[in-house]
Write a protein that binds this DNA or RNA. Structure first.
Length: 150
DNA sequence: GCCAACGTTGGC
DNA sequence: GCCAACGTTGGC
């Protein structure tokens, strides 16, 4: 079992939205590194659910990977914000996985708090300077440490 | 293949 | 709303 962190802007799609729908295709990722991480995911992998671009950014709950990677259908939709004219059905460029709700944290584990515990989270990709990746790997040790902060 | 221009991300 | 950091685009 592997672990990941996935970012979302709560104004667009929050942990409460995920709780409401139960499961969601993680469409719209248009970064090759993030896409490659999703392709490396397996059903059952753990996901730290992160709220970005909000008053208190941080990890707000747990989700899980509930599908293998498959082509992101929005890349073919001309009217979609995520349409990619260079992508074809035969050779899709973008992939996604379905993400399932696990649980919402009783309280947010804020970015500030994560930074304060950086020494226990060595080389955490989220804390790397200028990190903008929306999907990134988490080690078993980092996962454990973060759960202990909840 | 270089790199300037531009667009996006995301904390603050 | 600002802006640093970074990715992508496209002219050459």
């Amino acid at each position: 079992m592997k672990y990941w962190l996935m970012k979302t802007e709560p104004d667009a799609f929050s942990i409460d939205d995920l709780a409401a729908v139960g499961r969601e295709p993680w469409s719209g990722v248009r970064n090759y590194q993030a896409r490659n991480f999703m392709k490396a995911m397996s059903v059952g992998d753990g996901v730290l659910f992160y709220h970005s671009n909000t008053k208190v950014p941080g990890i707000v709950g747990l989700a899980e990977v509930v599908s293998e990677a498959y082509p992101d259908p929005t890349q073919f939709v001309k009217t979609s914000d995520y349409y990619d004219p260079k992508s074809t059905q035969e050779e899709p460029r973008w992939a996604l996985v379905d993400v399932g709700f696990k649980r919402k944290f009783k309280r947010i584990v804020s970015l500030e708090e994560l930074k304060a515990n950086a020494d226990r989270l060595d080389e955490f990709a989220l804390l790397r300077r200028g990190s903008r990746l929306s999907v990134l790997p988490v080690t078993a040790g980092q996962w454990k440490t973060i759960l202990s902060l909840e």
